[in-house]
């Protein structure tokens, strides 16, 4: 008998609660578009925000409500974008995929430090103190703010040198571009391989004092380029990727070896 009462009381309570919850969930059910789950599933799920929406579910909701176009996510490949477009019955807006490159190739080991830096070990903090602890005013500070910021883990710290971007993992989301306090990172088309690994606007004399591989604005690369894709602006070589033919003459010609390739 002493077993019947607990069994009965708890059992009935459980039954009542279960039924109650079932009824409540039906009454207060929120109608969701079944396509929403499918779209969210297809999106990479990194919530990087490159699309301009709050996370992947934000972009998915915007797509479902018909307020936006399909190709905004740089992290999903062409195939994914087409699949999403198919589910929603809209046009697949496939744009050229981009990858990030760090436009600095200098030696940033202690040899090139202005002095002993005792602050917080982030690029942002260092950049606030007189432009940074590296001799070159435009150079990479090496604390890896971009490394931490990359939601895909595509950037790797290298000691004594600027970080290295893994092109396979890079989705071109652009978060590193916004993170770098020295604005060293640029998104270039994924089918182009050559870039100027320097951002120094200093005159040649100063560049030579602070870096062995800095751009001195000599212009040889511009002259050697078969399609005039390079031009010198503010003592710095600048690449126009619409004209670049991936010839690689610039890399061979540069006397300071500051043009690099992603390959």
């Amino acid at each position: 008998m002493t077993f019947i009462i607990p069994l009965g009381v708890l059992g009935l309570l459980g039954l009542a609660m279960g039924i109650g919850l079932g009824l409540a969930s039906k009454k207060f059910a929120v109608q969701t578009d079944p396509r929403l789950a499918a779209v969210i599933d297809l999106l990479p799920g990194a919530n990087c925000g490159a699309c301009g929406f709050p996370g992947c579910s934000g972009y998915a909701r915007a797509l479902i409500s018909g307020n936006t176009k399909s190709g905004l996510c740089p992290a999903s490949g062409e195939e994914t974008t087409r699949k999403i477009a198919e589910i929603l019955g809209i046009a697949a807006d496939v744009s050229q995929k981009k990858v990030a490159v760090i436009k600095c190739g200098g030696d940033i080991s202690s040899k090139r430090h202005k002095g002993a830096y005792e602050g917080a070990k982030t690029c942002l903090s260092s950049s606030l103190v007189g432009g940074g602890h590296i001799m070159c005013d435009y150079g990479c500070l090496g604390f890896g703010d971009c490394v931490s910021a990359c939601p895909f883990g595509a950037i790797e710290n290298k000691s004594g040198k600027p970080p290295e971007i893994n092109t396979e993992k890079c989705t071109g989301c652009g978060i590193c571009v916004k993170t770098c306090p020295k604005n060293l990172i640029e998104l270039i088309p994924s089918n182009k391989y050559y870039y100027v690994a320097c951002s120094s606007k200093d005159k040649a004399k100063i560049v030579k004092q602070v870096c062995d591989s800095g751009c001195i604005g000599c212009g040889i690369c511009a002259r050697k380029c078969p399609n005039q894709a390079l031009s010198i602006e503010n003592n710095l070589s600048k690449m126009d990727y619409e004209k670049c033919l991936n010839a690689g003459e610039c890399l061979k010609a540069c006397p300071k070896k500051c043009i690099k390739t992603r390959k």
């Binding site: 459980g14 609660m17 279960g18 919850l21 079932g22 969930s25």
Partner: peptide, 10 residues
């Protein structure tokens, strides 16, 4: 899923 919490608590 709907009775997840009650089950844990019990």
């Amino acid at each position: 899923p709907k009775v997840r919490l009650p089950v844990f608590i019990v």
